[in-house]
Design a protein around this nucleic acid. Sequence first.
DNA 1: CCTGCCGTCGAATCC
DNA 2: CGACGGCAGG
Length: 719
Amino acid sequence: MTDLLSTLNSDQRAAVTAPASALILAGAGSGKTRVLTTRIAWLIQSNQVSPMGLLAVTFTNKAAKEMLTRLTSMLQLGYQNSTRGMWVGTFHGLCNRLLRTHHREVGLPQLFTILDSSDQLSAVKRVLRGLNVDTETFDPRKVQSFINQNKEAGLRADKVEAWDPYSRHLVEYYAEYDRQLNREGAVDFAELMLRAYELLSRNALLREHYQERFRHILVDEFQDTSRLQYLWLKLLKGPETALFAVGDDDQSIYAFRGANVGNMRQLMDDLHIAEPIKLTRNYRSVSVILDAANAVISRNEGRLGKDLWTEVGKGELIRHFQAADDIAEARFLVEEIQQRRREGDAYLDQAVLYRSNAQSRSIEHALFTAGIPYRVYGGLRFFERAEIKHALAYLRLAAFPDDDNAFMRVVNFPARGIGARGLEALDDQARGAGISLWAAACGAGKTTGKKFAAFVSLIEGLKHAIVGLPLMEQVEHVVAGSGLLEYYQNEKDGEDRVDNLNELANAAAGFAAESDEPTLEAFLGHAALEAGEHAAAQGQDAVQLMSVHSAKGLEFQTVFITGLEEGLFPHENSRNEAEGLEEERRLMYVAITRARRQLYLTHAQQRMLHGQIRYHLPSQFLQEIPENLVQSLTSRTRAPAAPRVANTRAENYHPRPVPRREANLPYKIGARVVHPKYGEGVVAAYQGQGAESEIKVIFPKVGDKWFILEYARLTALGA
DNA sequence: CCTGCCGTCGAATCC
DNA sequence: CGACGGCAGG
């Protein structure tokens, strides 16, 4: 047991062996995951708790898996022995588990559906249509975010305060949306949390049962928990339970999703913790990188306060490159990646990070053309793909035909002559009788019902055919029997989708092998919550492409942070949000601290964005890094950006046919100008071409203004 | 009543 | 540049 602790530093050891509830303020690269897993191993090994008494909450499924793997090797026991009975998962995964177990108490069918955000948006649209709401006045996306914000704050429609007519309408739609989901036995992500919270808060017996069971609750990425999640944790925490929370306020990057850093101080107040245990020794990065990270984050206010340090050496300077445009930026990446590979860095250990997923396109193009293997994380997830959702809908109908969402999705896909008219009639009938669409379809009249009857018997056929089959074969059978496979085989450009459908069967096989409950029902629940990043190409030596958000928790030998431009990173929309810039800065901090040895920072003077050429200032974050840590590569001579032609390697790739026309730019970016009304300002960006060219000027007093270039009454200020 | 085309509109991060 | 909604033709 001592050997578990012997390799830890004193702060880490204090954290691992904390006798009661504790808050660990763990800097990037300070061995946070290690502390968490070692604590669990230590608690089990010293017989302070059995695996049954442990609840561990992680932020992603990946982190949960990683924790279990490490734990197994630490305890040197069989996987099953060391972890059986332990509850490990994400908040949403654990809530899902609670709700499935106690589905009767919360009034849900056992096979309730989980709606992802696009499913949710469709549901909102359906509700609004049903209420004859003008979607010009009430943007469905706004309604969706209104609903989610309130759910995340723990508020049901009848508890939301609405003082003006507009809000009262929103509340009404929220209420109707919830009624609809209840009818359908469906829950959205926020509902998983809220419903589980309500279950525990209303049912004292159940609550006490879990409070007594869980002697130790461990929470990772605590800075990213929402208000409701924190209350949920407190409900599960009994008087005898030790709550062990690990977090880093400087890495809080999910405020947009309801994360509340304030939970860290709140926890200290609530549990009478005088001081957090700080882990500031960094084992990951060379000091140049840490110094840069510290310098950037020091500009934020109200931090809990800590600076990272290391005993690893200084390392190479950070390299900065300014590219003429996004294509030149991508070409720079390709050259450097190849160079580093020649010097011994595997592709796998090089990551390209960007602020938003859309930026991956030009980078992918360049890597593809150069024949460099790469892997893109995030973006459209496996289980969010249309063909996969269709297949899952058929599977769900086979298991639980009353699922209206699944019914709607595939009743006419592949097309079988059922249109909006017929569905409307069916929907009226179902509503009138208070039954599901499926039930209505089963009893559909002779005139309209023929096509429905055919669909019903198709599903019945699938249902009977898969009884008793292993999970993978169930999936294969339904994919084929539903006609989906044939449909995509006949569609041109459908090969990827066919591949994905086959991959779904593999995913099912993989799930069956890992899960202790290899049923179709469990698989369906898993699919909604899991991103579905599969073994596919996981072992391959490929460059890693991802958003900064999805890079959190990971580390790489070499990291490229790209698109460091005002408007992109920090993102434009963050300007309008309270503390938006500070969150962007934390994001930058996360990005920097992913690198072990070498960090690259790049930005482009112009780039294609949303189908238009945009001109941006370099990101302010570049200036926040002390100059003596950075080496500029920009003076290095490079060929000017030329219109690219398809490389011989890329025969299947269709490049954008864009010899770009240089716009006429009367002022340099950053030039000082005077406007007769707004006074003195600085040119920040251009967009558009020809007569549509616009210029963005930042005025210290008035803020940002866009002008049509042709009419802008600007005068250059001598400098 | 379905399918395909065209136009408009929007555009960030994720469980 | 892409997704989706509306409309017209089959």
